[in-house]
Each structure stands twice: as C-alpha cells, then as structure tokens.
C-alpha cells in the first residue's frame, strides 16, 4: 500500500492499475494455496487415522483430575505429576526471559519509552497500582507477590496451549497441562496467598492482624479449588477435543485458544484481586475510636 502511494507520483494511472491487478492476483494465489494445504492436511489426517489409544476417554479425564497413573520422572530423582514439570518449565522460561530483559533491555531504558519498554513498565505498573489501590497502607510486598503470582498464573495457563509433550514413567506421551490444573499446584497458590494475607495482617496490626485474617479461614480452600476447577475445566475440554479426531478441526481455535486466553486473564485477575483486597483489609491499621459519652 505504502509502495503504491509512493509510486503514485512516478507511475501513470494505467501502470498503477496493472500493478494493483498483479498484487490482487498474488493475494488470491496465496489464499488458494493456503486452503489447499489445509485440505491436504485434513485429508491426510483422516486417511492416516488417529494413533492407537492406550487410554479410554474416561481414563484420560480421570487422570487429568487425579494424576494417579501418568507421572513423570523429575531428573530421575522423584516421580511427579506432569503439572509440576509444566510449573518448572514455566518458571525457567520466565526467569530466563526476565534475566535477558534485565541484562539487555533494562539498562537501555529511556525517559521517553519505546514500545517494549512501555509494555514492561505498564505490566509492572498495573500490579503496583493494583496493590496500592487495594492496600493503600502497606503494599510493597503485596505488589511483588501479585506480580509473581499474576505472571505465573497467566503464563502457566497460556502454556497449556503449546501442548508440549513429555514421556510418562510408563512410556506414554502426555501433553503438559497448565501448572495450576494440578490440585497440588492450585492448593499451593491458594494457601500461599492466604499466608501472604496473614503476613500483611501481622505486619499491619501485630497479633491482632492474625485474628482478623483468620475470619477468612475459607479463603485458601476457595482460592485453591477455584483455580483448580477453572484450569481443570480447560484441560478437560482440550483433552476431550483432541481425543476425538472429528472435533480437532476448527473447534480448538475457539474452545482452546480463546477460552484459554480468557480464563488465563480471568483467573489471574481473580486471584490477585482477592489477595490484594484481603491483604488491604487486614493490614489496614485500626485506631481505637474514643467515644464522647
């Protein structure tokens, strides 16, 4: 388009029209080739059929919830659920990316930011402001915590989209799920968030803060199971879609990508919002009101 605009001054109207027709022709050819490739893949997939299933859909679903059969050896030290491998991969990826950004990008930060700098600053500022808004009295630690938790939940949830494969101890391939689709990972986040809230209570109001935080005793349970339920539903839907070949075309775009992106955002927001508001509530210093009577 830009080329055409530039060329307008130098080419005559007829040559411009010819160029437009050529470009339009090229675009049509690309679309036709793309559709043919898709059709070829579809025919190929249908002709070859799905690989021999070593588990029924019932077993797959059961294992997605309980992780009692498919375990992966963690460097030969211990057998762990696939979600823990996902957690380690997500953490390693995030840490490596953070280290690269720290070494190569942050030292070149400018007062007037570029696009990537703006993106990073907005990301950090979002969590900073979130912590400040929900807990105006004490928010330094909270900001750092919700930043870590938010990044972990969001990237961890997106991670399941890639469908990285790992081999179980039984030798079967298994797609790595979101870290928090494992009940153990979800319980960790829920309980840790509650501990953070309690620590805010202690820091803000001393021992009385613990009592204030204890009134929300159901919080770790609700947080854990909310996360687990939300992310497990994503895993189950994806497993179901990919288990049957007929459902694997077109549907995953909506059911997989869009739903995963949406619940990654929603779950991140819900956890940091609940943690921040509870933290703000318990860490708010309470002054004794002197009655006039």
């Amino acid at each position: 388009m830009e080329v055409l605009l530039i060329d307008k001054g130098t080419y005559s109207k007829s040559s411009l029209r010819r160029r437009r027709i050529i470009i339009k022709g090229k675009k049509t050819a690309i679309i036709i080739v793309w559709v043919l490739v898709i059709l070829a893949l579809l025919v190929g997939a249908l002709l070859t059929g799905s690989a021999e299933k070593h588990e029924t859909i019932k077993e797959v679903m059961r294992d997605a919830v309980l992780h009692d059969s498919n375990q992966i050896s963690f460097f030969g030290i211990i057998n762990v659920n696939p979600a823990f491998i996902s957690a380690v991969v997500v953490s390693a990826t995030l840490l490596v990316a953070a280290a690269i950004i720290r070494i190569f990008v942050i030292p070149k930060f400018k007062i007037i930011p570029g696009r990537f700098q703006l993106l990073l600053e907005q990301l950090v500022k979002f969590f900073m402001d979130f912590a400040e808004k929900n807990s105006p009295h004490r928010n330094r630690f909270l900001g750092a915590y919700i930043f870590g938790a938010g990044m972990y939940i969001f990237v961890g949830t997106i991670f399941e989209l890639f469908g990285f494969q790992a081999v179980t101890t039984k030798g079967h391939p298994v797609a790595l799920p979101a870290p928090l689709s494992d009940i153990n990972g979800a319980i960790t986040m829920g309980c840790l968030s509650y501990l953070v809230v309690i620590s805010g209570g202690i820091a803000g109001n001393g021992p009385k803060g613990i009592l204030r935080a204890l009134k929300d005793f159901s919080m770790p349970l609700s947080m854990s199971f909310r996360l687990f339920g939300a992310l497990l539903s994503g895993v189950l839907v994806t497993e179901l879609l990919y288990y049957y070949l007929q459902l694997s075309f077109g549907l995953p775009v909506v059911a997989g990508v869009l739903f995963t992106l949406l619940h990654a955002l929603v779950q991140t927001y819900v956890l940091i919002m609940l943690t921040s508001s509870s933290y703000g509530e318990v860490s708010e210093p309470h002054k004794k009101v002197k009655s006039n009577a």
């Binding site: 953490s91 995030l94 990073l120 950090v124 915590y145 930043f147 986040m189 840790l192």
Partner: peptide, 18 residues
C-alpha cells in the same frame, strides 16, 4: 515442590524485573 518452585520464581522475578 510447587511452593519451592513458586518461591524461586517470584523471588527471581522480583529481583530481575519488578
């Protein structure tokens, strides 16, 4: 193990990015 993983991650992210 998840707790350890998350602790390392959040501390690292705090030091390197936040």
């Amino acid at each position: 193990l998840h707790l350890l993983n998350f602790a390392v991650l959040s501390f690292g992210l705090y030091l390197l990015l936040y």
